[in-house]
Design a protein around this nucleic acid. Sequence first.
DNA 1: CCGTTGTCGGCAAACGTTTGCAGCAGGTTA
DNA 2: TAACCTGCTGCAAACGTTTGCCGACAACGG
Lengths: 341, 341
Amino acid sequence: MAVTIRDVARASGVHISTVSRTFSAPHLVNPETRSRVLATAEQLGYRPNRAARALITGRTHNIGLIVADIANPFFPPLIKAAETHARRRDYHVFVADTDEDPIVEADLVQALAKQVDGILLCSPRMTDDQIEQLRREVPLVVINRMITGLPAVVMDVGQGARSAVRHLLDLGHRHLVYLSGPRGSWTNREIRRAAGATARAAGADLTVLGPHQPVTSAGAAAAEAVLATGATAVLAYNDLMAIGLLQALQDRDVAVPGEVSVVGIDDIAASVLVRPQLTTVANPTAAAGRAAVDMLLQQGDDGSTGQINLHTDLVIRNSTGPGPYLPAGATTAEVAAYVKE
Amino acid sequence: MAVTIRDVARASGVHISTVSRTFSAPHLVNPETRSRVLATAEQLGYRPNRAARALITGRTHNIGLIVADIANPFFPPLIKAAETHARRRDYHVFVADTDEDPIVEADLVQALAKQVDGILLCSPRMTDDQIEQLRREVPLVVINRMITGLPAVVMDVGQGARSAVRHLLDLGHRHLVYLSGPRGSWTNREIRRAAGATARAAGADLTVLGPHQPVTSAGAAAAEAVLATGATAVLAYNDLMAIGLLQALQDRDVAVPGEVSVVGIDDIAASVLVRPQLTTVANPTAAAGRAAVDMLLQQGDDGSTGQINLHTDLVIRNSTGPGPYLPAGATTAEVAAYVKE
DNA sequence: CCGTTGTCGGCAAACGTTTGCAGCAGGTTA
DNA sequence: TAACCTGCTGCAAACGTTTGCCGACAACGG
């Protein structure tokens, strides 16, 4: 059937071990022999059988990537970056989707465990205990969650939330709402904490609403509750919810940012497609994907369990404007200048 | 290290072949023995080593899924459906991204070929010849492209384009533009052909602009050219381009659908997030993903090479309105009624 | 009681690699 | 000249399964 190491050996008049070494330890074989073997291999169209290799080395050269929801536009850029980066290191990536369900999540890790060299766990919804448990079965790198002793890549969403809240405070808002994300999300806790602390320190109010599924419909559904609080500015767990809210407010003829300012988190592509364009916190998702792959791959070598914290950026667009404390006629341009000071 | 079939055999006092059979051919082993083996296997936490199994059976229980761009919101629902469906059949999915580059595409198929039981090639940009070539190396199912003799799942985008054009004609438009997608896209040719034929049959004009990359920026960049044609309605290769165009028109104070109507294709999530909401052709992407997986899996059994054509639906929203032939004051509601007739 | 049939389980040979060990040639050192 | 490297290659044993073949044994019909 397929051409094996044995065919190449026969055709080039060497032992199979020499062929094997030509590929897996080239420095151990005479350059002359090597090029001869390489030539016949090329000619015969030989491709190493990864299953056989995996069987003996114990390394599959595959990694698993588990995300909450592929259809959530936050993830694709991360998946893409991780996949490309892994392939450059001769690894392939299994992508799986948990539908935001912690049970499915645990099952998936179990199922993939024996078939990959490690798993990237992205925004997991499991408990810390569960994750530490699973770590004993397979190397893990967690993305967007900090667990002591576990290698992790997080985007500094706390800092992002602080910037966002400060931006709103600077605009004069004194009563804010935080639209909570899903239960079990570490990111959600971080944002809530950071936003709460920042608001409190400035003597402003922050009302927390939620939890919500991180989708547009949940954001839209929260509109009534938001208005009921009387707040003039909203920070949402993610852009999808922020966008949902944005549109529900428009449907109710509530002006954004005239009456209510809205800030999202993630900076997904759609955030520049809606009107007004969304002020949001940009996350370096691609960088996170790459960093996580690197971390996972070198975790095998040494036993290092570093934690990487990536910087996030507030991107000010048009969904935020002056709050009640500023002169009513101030334009966003003036406000932008004001914010700079 | 890991618990193997041998450990289970020893612990339950049978030969390894019996253990193997309890898993891969249960009917060949005595129910009593079977349950005993199963029990000890469970207790020891035994998991079959897929590499070893693959080595001897030649089936990896993996499939590859190659798409043009994971970050294009058209693909994630398809990926998600394929992945979930495959897992239900005990298959795992490798996802890879070609960045719309036919060379990368060919490389990826080669790289994955030996490691999977088959590949789902989604909206390929390669030539038909190349694809037929690759088919000799690995079972293939093509999505969104029709090649004689090759198993394929396509969404009937021709029919979608016809509905879209007819909708525009019914609204009174007489000069249409088709905003072409990327070079090498079968879908693009189909749409162009169907749209052209439909317009021509009605005695209307259809100007083709392009090719373009299937992204929002390309749609926006085409705005000038569109206006220069003097057309009153535009069909775009996909929603991203349509949305880009929509916004570029708004930036130029061109009213949509007042002065120009815009129709997209795909019905991505963002098409209801923009204002006006986009009239578009909904594609059954999830169904396509599932169908393709099934087709690939049973391709191994018999040698069947069916082709499936999935129905598409025109979704009329607010980006289309009456053309110059209708009374200027007609509202979209009246027009919708008119279209029904 | 013998022969036949059928069920079950063991034996051992694969599958395509990697890798520790040993051999061998040629060169260097003592 | 002996002893010892050094660089290269061959040998063979793994890795954890699956599976064709055969033997053991029980049941059954004649």
